[in-house]
Design a protein around this nucleic acid. Structure first.
Lengths: 197, 197
DNA sequence: AAATTAATTGAATGTTCATTCAAAATTACG
DNA sequence: CGTAATTTTGAATGAACATTCAATTAATTT
């Protein structure tokens, strides 16, 4: 009996708006009051759904990291085309769109908070390990199928992600379009070189 | 005539304290008031020396980035031992101490601000280009002297720094000592592999 | 000692903030 | 319709904030 709960939807709405506001103004300049203003609701409603700002931040980190996992959830899998799958994956990892989609101020701000908050650090660690594990599994399958010749799928996957992370770190500083594209291309070629493709 | 200016010393003291407070509490939780409290001075004195918080932040970024350049300023240079110099440099780049010294919450927080502040983004870009240029110069000298065989010193230097940046990004998430050291070691070996040393 | 310059303090400003609480509005069910 | 659950509002709290301004203190020179 009683009214139906809107908790899940509202919480998601709030976090999404939080993300948008923070993206524009920076996480350090984003307050509960500002999110509420933007949503045209009362600040106390946000507290009603999230208890306090810390909880709100944890939810934001989860939101960001979940988005990241799309990389291996939205991909065509054709049973027989292992190599095609791998190439598509690497192509996506080193794509401008990918960087624009997931690499931003909020991501690094949250990452930085991880230095002082082990819960957040753990969330990031789990994300990156999960990405590495996925690539490693793909590489292992390719190796068994004779598509690629590498020693350790695990080490290679790790190295490729080190490359991805380092690449985006530097690329995000580049404002000149040509320079950006040249670099990105050369990093990608290098990654393919690791796989001897 | 009149009293001598303490401007330079005071500014440096303030920025250093800012850095320390921010390291402990996070840059987003650090206020002028807190820095003043920690220094046992009046908040208005900080404004006297820095005009406003934005100026204070620019100075903090300069402070952090200057520290970074130590890597190629504090190194023994023996004219005839090019290879030794190179090995020492790479060793240093991939060292735990190095990571601990320069890789922290504040660094990434400031980097993140760069996404919305082109002045700060420019400062980071210049730092990283300067690091790359230095390594590239060293590699060029080594190549001419026949110490290493590589194609492009510039591209190799770039790649090594991509590796360094990506490595520290991931390593900072690792809390287990053994895992950290193994990874770091393997990344370093890989960098040496790039130089065929 | 007087004049000058800069450092430093202290009080005050108005704003924004997270959070609390009680009251009101809304929806569902019997 | 009445009860129960949940949403939503609105007002209030006290703390913290960046910044201002005028007044005071301290060092330096003539």
């Amino acid at each position: 009996m009683g009214r139906n709960s809107l908790k899940d939807e509202r919480q998601k709405e709030i976090i999404q708006k939080y993300y948008l506001v923070a993206k524009k103004e920076g996480i350090e300049n984003t307050s509960i009051a500002k999110i509420a203003l933007e949503m045209d609701i009362n600040p106390s409603l946000i507290i009603h759904y999230f208890k306090n700002k810390e909880e709100l931040n944890y939810a934001l980190v989860d939101f960001i990291l979940e988005k990241y996992l799309i990389i291996y959830k939205r991909q065509n899998v054709e049973e027989d085309d292992l190599k095609g799958y791998l190439v598509e994956l690497i192509d996506k990892l080193f794509s401008k769109k990918w960087n624009a989609l997931f690499n931003d101020s909020i991501f690094y701000s949250c990452y930085a908070i991880g230095f002082r908050d082990n819960i957040i650090k753990g969330k990031f660690k789990r994300l990156h390990d999960s990405l590495r594990k996925h690539l490693s599994d793909v590489l292992m399958k390719c190796k068994i199928a004779g598509v690629i010749q590498i020693d350790s799928p695990e080490a290679t996957a790790d190295l490729i992600y080190v490359l991805v992370d380092g690449a985006y770190y530097y690329l995000s500083l580049i404002s000149e379009r040509g320079e950006y594209e040249n670099k990105l291309k050369s990093y990608k070629e290098y990654a393919f070189g690791l796989l001897k493709i």
